[in-house]
Design a protein around this nucleic acid. Structure first.
Lengths: 332, 332
DNA sequence: AAACAAAATGTAAACGTTTACAAAAAAGAA
DNA sequence: TTCTTTTTTGTAAACGTTTACATTTTGTTT
């Protein structure tokens, strides 16, 4: 590997001059520039990024921590992030946790070690102590994750209110026995949605029945399996609220397979409004999150943090929207 | 930001000693270690990763370049990559090109500047010169992309043979008018699949008709639209071979919407065997790529390149498999 | 041709680590 | 106690850049 020194030697100039040529803007005479350029070509020289970053104390790289990249929910958010990043000359890299918290921890450490300029995390699944410490001294934004009263820059919708709203809708449609598919509550947001569900029942004078709650992994297969198991359990229900569209899609598959009519015999509602939800049969009633906008806002927030500029709001609550489709209402 | 110097000063030792304590293995007396540890805590010191990497000349980070992260085809491959990486203490980061070649170029440059230890790219959509140069001196593996006779470590299936095989299957099922949905041929692999299609026609004595070829973006929506446009064109066809499952799924949606029975009036075949393909109605006939294995192999290859060990095969051809489902055969 | 200003180049000190090597301190053996 | 050996510590030179400052070269003005 040729270094700047080799180039300087070959071109017969000082390393400072080489650096100026590489950077482009420095005052260097055309003759010298030509000599240097030729030496660079000849040696196939590439400036070392680490040395440069060390000197500049910044990398222009930022990392997005995603719990599971195959969850399509994140894709549109990523668009928003990517486009905002590009406008600001930042480069984003995605760390797929694959639901392993060790990965989140690793990159939070990388942030504190200045290996990257900032992080947007869609997980918050490590020791609160670590999160707090990272957010305190470094640019970190938590998105789509509720945090129990620690002050970290964040953006999220109001999951409790949204879940309540969609359950109220089911109840208003005449359903009184709502089953709930949720995911393991290591993510607080599933806890929030469960809270919204119970709040809705309570406010409508319905009983909470533990037998109607099923824990899934947040994917189609698991939603499918848990719905079958629910059907086999013999417990009566006339609707399903799944805390994620993937689980809801699995539920629809199971119901159809058993010949149960949707929504008449059993209505289904999801959460997130992923792309597939409007395409399946029947189209899925769900909560739409302003995904693209969340991405943009999260990135803008992070950039402000990196630049040290003032942040108007450290905790943004984005607007959600109830999207009613045929899975919950015959007449639309 | 506290540096190693600050810690050394506070603890009253040399920076070498601090370094030894941080690293963990060095010979340092318990008393000194305690002093240093306390100073580290007190100053909230985190070693600078860039300085460390500069010294070590390696980062343990490798980048995966993906054309479009929302293409589920890549997700299972990523599993293979991630698990192999973890076993080897490497950390992977995903660069989503979002189909912009500028991003691929940027990270190839990052590789040459030693910002990362290696790259696996699922794109090859920049100047061949750049690719060649990068692969020549740095650890780079191209996966799932055919490269026109340049010698770069790679792994791929035989796209021509696979496409031929699936078209032969359609023809053997009695279809004689196969439409083809393909994607813009900036990716050579689509060219390959088209070649397989034409080869199959030729070998079976059927005419190639340009009107049966439609160019899509490789996603559901575009497959849907192009199929509708094909139907509206009035050109007769009795089957569709889509060069990707997402396009095929769009095609199925369009056919169903128009009340055309699958596979009797029109058979459909895809390519890739993504998760959704076995779940839709009717299940999709397709070519399965050994995705997980491709991920493992690509990563292992890259690790060998990084370690400088000998590589048995620089160009791996993975085995594909024709998966026949109901979208092409009523009786299965 | 001398005096000056402007442009081009070089020198050397950073950036924050790691690590050979040297030196000092502690422990063990005689 | 004195001499070795072992353990612990420190010194200083890397790693490959950038950049303030000093110096030299070039060009302009008189």
């Amino acid at each position: 590997m040729a270094t700047i020194k080799d180039v300087a030697e070959l071109a017969g100039v000082s390393i400072a001059t080489v650096s100026r040529v590489v950077k482009g803007n420095g005052n260097v005479s055309p003759k010298t520039a030509a000599k240097v350029t030729s030496a660079i070509k000849q040696l196939n020289y590439h400036p070392n990024a680490l040395a440069r970053q060390l000197k500049h104390q910044c990398t222009n790289n930022i990392i997005i921590i995603i719990p599971d990249i195959s969850n399509t929910f994140f894709h549109e958010i990523l668009h928003g992030i990517e486009e905002t990043a590009e406008r600001n000359d930042m480069h984003i890299l995605i760390a797929d946790m694959h639901n392993k918290t060790s990965i989140e921890e690793y990159y939070l450490r990388a942030l504190m070690q200045k290996e990257v300029d900032g992080i947007i995390s869609f997980s918050a699944n490590v020791a609160q102590q670590l999160l707090k410490q990272a957010a305190n001294d470094f640019p970190l934004v938590i998105a789509c994750q509720y945090l129990d009263n620690i002050d970290i820059p964040s953006i999220t919708i109001d999951n409790v209110a949204a879940a309540k709203e969609i359950c109220n809708h089911l109840i208003a449609s005449g359903k009184k026995n709502i089953a709930h598919l949720t995911a393991l509550p290591n993510f607080l947001l599933y806890q929030d949605r469960l809270d919204g569900y119970t709040a809705s029942l309570r406010e409508n004078g319905l009983d909470f029945r533990a037998g109607l709650i099923r824990y899934c992994s947040p994917n189609i297969k698991s939603g499918y399996e848990q719905t079958l198991s629910l059907l086999d359990s013999g417990i009566y229900f006339d609707s399903i609220f799944a805390a994620g569209d993937t689980m809801a899609i699995g539920a629809i598959r199971a119901l159809k397979e058993r010949g149960i009519s949707i929504p008449d015999e059993c209505a289904v509602a999801g959460f997130d409004d992923i792309e597939m939800s409007s395409l399946i049969d029947p189209p899925l009633t769900t909560i739409r999150q302003p995904k693209y906008q969340i991405g943009c806002d999260a990135m803008n927030m992070l950039i402000s943090l990196i630049r040290g500029s003032h942040i108007a709001k450290r905790n943004i609550v984005a607007e959600h929207q109830l999207v009613i489709r045929q899975s919950s209402c015959s007449v639309n």
